[in-house]
Design a protein around this nucleic acid. Structure first.
Lengths: 111, 111
DNA sequence: TTGACATTCAACCAAAAGGTTGAATATATT
DNA sequence: AATATATTCAACCTTTTGGTTGAATGTCAA
């Protein structure tokens, strides 16, 4: 469920501004594909593809009702991504050479 | 400094497992390019390119001493990325329809 | 100065990403 | 039954990505 590939897919999915915008659009609740596509200047098909990327990354769930597809946000992948990032950051924040790093950066700032 | 493009570059950079491994390697402190490349099965040139991607994303800083290039980790980009992710997550966590979502998911779990 | 070492540059390649257009499918509406 | 709507599928194109190999550059060491 949380293989490294999943993390790859999550990060890749949110690395695109269009897809981040789609996720944010879904914050106001479920929306159909056409509704999601409406504000963008690119074709419906392009958005359809972006949605597929988000879906493969499990960031978006699809609920089919007749010919309409309702999309909604799923939180797990971002939780996992946040975990990786925070672990990495915390590790660094706690390293013994933090002081050394600070000094080195301060040193460089003087040039 | 923190344009959306920067966020794109950061997320794209850490979406690759090799590059995440490089960052983690740098947790044990500065390292030269060859040292960083050593554990990987791919060519030095490939790693050199990965480092360039990390550098363009400002995740890695390079300090040249003679023929040797010392690489070190920089924390700002991950801070920014974490901020975006956390904002998105917090927004969702606080949405009124959280209950509705939970119920819907519970409902699905029964199948 | 000759040779080894650390690193990048350049050219190339295959695969993936991100977009387009046009046709297909499935469902609603009249 | 005919038409309109919602969405995807398929083919295509261009750019980017991630890798390769071989040559170039710059620095250290004999």
């Amino acid at each position: 469920m949380s293989t490294p590939q999943t993390l790859d897919r999550t990060l890749l999915a949110i690395a695109d501004p269009t897809r981040r915008a789609i996720l944010q659009r879904l914050s106001s609740g479920e929306a159909r594909v056409t509704e999601v596509a409406q504000p963008f200047s690119m074709s419906l098909n392009a958005i359809s593809k972006h949605i597929l990327v988000l879906e493969r990354a499990r960031l978006v769930k699809r609920r089919r009702v007749g010919r309409e597809h309702f999309l909604s946000y799923r939180s797990e992948p971002l939780d996992t991504a946040a975990k990786w990032i925070d672990e990495t950051r915390n590790f660094w924040a706690s390293r013994l050479d933090t002081l050394e790093k600070l000094l080195r950066e301060e040193d460089e700032a003087k040039r």
